[in-house]
Design a protein around this nucleic acid. Structure first.
Lengths: 148, 148
DNA sequence: ATAATTTCCTATTAAAATTATAGGAAATAT
DNA sequence: ATATTTCCTATAATTTTAATAGGAAATTAT
C-alpha cells in the first residue's frame, strides 16, 4: 500500500497541477485546503523539490510550483521518490535493486524471482503510462486558468 | 514490498511443496534447512494453517503439510494472508476495502482511484494466475518422489 | 502410565519504519 | 527593517514488523 506520505504528495501535486502556471503556492494554503499536517507537508514538498518535480521561492509571495506541466510528471517518479521501490522483491527492482537476503536460490534460477519479475513488469507498464494529469479530476478549473 | 513474513511463508511453502504427499514435516526441519528463525516460522505456519493452506499434526512424527497440491494453492492467497491487501490504496482493495481517509474526493469521481484501480486490475490478473507450483524451482526432486 | 516430541497459543520484547513536530537559519519582497 | 516563506536538522511519538518466551495441549512410542 502507498504510505500516507505518498498519498499526501499526490494530493499536494494535483493541487499544484490545478494551479499550474499561476504562480507560487505557499505550503500553508495547500495544507489547509487539503487537510495535510503542515510540517509533514513541508518535508514532503522539500523532497519533491530535491527530486526536481517542484520548484520553490522563499520569502513573501513565495511558495511551490510544478517545474513541468502535469502531463510530463510521471506517477512512478512520485511513488519512487516517496516510497522507494515499485517491485515486490528487492531482487526484482529496477531502480532500488538488492539481492534478496532471505532467498537461498541463485538469482537466475529462482522461480519466485521470475514470478515477481512478471508482476513488476505489468505494474510498471501501467504506472509508467500515468502522469499527474491522469490523477487530476477533470472538472476542476480555476478562475485564472483560461488555457482551456 | 513483501514483508519478511510473506517471503518466509513462500519459502516454507515451496519447501512443503517439494515434499507434497510425503508426510508431516516438523517446523525445526524447515527452519534449519531454509534458515528461518524457528519461533517466527512457527507463528507463520500457524497462520497458514488457520487460512486453510496447511494441515498439521502434533506429537512425535507430527508436523505440517499442504492441504492441496501446489497447483491449487494460489499466490494471492498467501500474500493476502501474510501481508493483507494487494491494492495500493484502501479504496481500491477487493478483499480489504476501506474508504481512503486522506482523500477529499467522492469515490466515484476520484481520478486517483481510477488509476490505482487499473494498477490493481493488472496486478491481480497476473497474481491470480500464479500457484505455489509456479514458485517452485523445476529441478528439485526428492528421493521418495517417483511420480515423475 | 510415562516420557518424548511436536504443535498450539498468548503474551511480550526488540527493532525499524512511518508519521509527525520543533525551532531556528536563510532567502526574498515590500 | 520587517514580515513572510522556504530550508534544514534534529527529535519525538506512534505504528508496524520482526522476533522471542514459555507453557498448555495433543500425539506417539515405550
Amino acid at each position: 500500500m502507498l504510505s500516507n506520505k505518498a498519498q499526501y504528495a499526490i494530493h499536494a501535486l494535483t493541487y499544484l497541477g490545478e494551479r499550474y502556471k499561476q504562480g507560487h503556492v505557499p505550503i500553508n494554503q495547500i495544507a489547509e485546503d487539503r487537510k495535510i499536517p503542515y510540517k509533514f507537508l513541508e518535508a514532503i514538498l522539500l523532497e519533491l523539490r530535491k527530486a526536481g518535480i517542484l520548484g520553490s521561492r522563499t520569502g513573501k509571495g513565495g511558495g511551490y510550483y510544478l517545474t513541468k506541466p502535469p502531463e510530463e510528471i510521471m506517477l512512478v517518479q512520485i511513488m519512487r521518490t516517496m516510497d522507494g521501490p515499485i517491485a515486490l522483491l528487492p531482487c526484482v527492482s529496477k531502480v532500488f535493486y538488492e539481492p534478496c537476503h532471505i532467498c537461498p536460490y541463485p538469482e537466475p534460477a529462482c522461480a519466485i524471482r521470475q514470478v515477481f519479475l512478471e508482476v513488476r513488469d505489468v505494474t510498471l507498464k501501467v504506472l509508467e503510462g500515468k502522469s499527474l494529469r491522469d490523477l487530476m479530476n477533470k472538472e476542476v478549473r480555476f478562475p485564472t486558468d483560461f488555457s482551456i
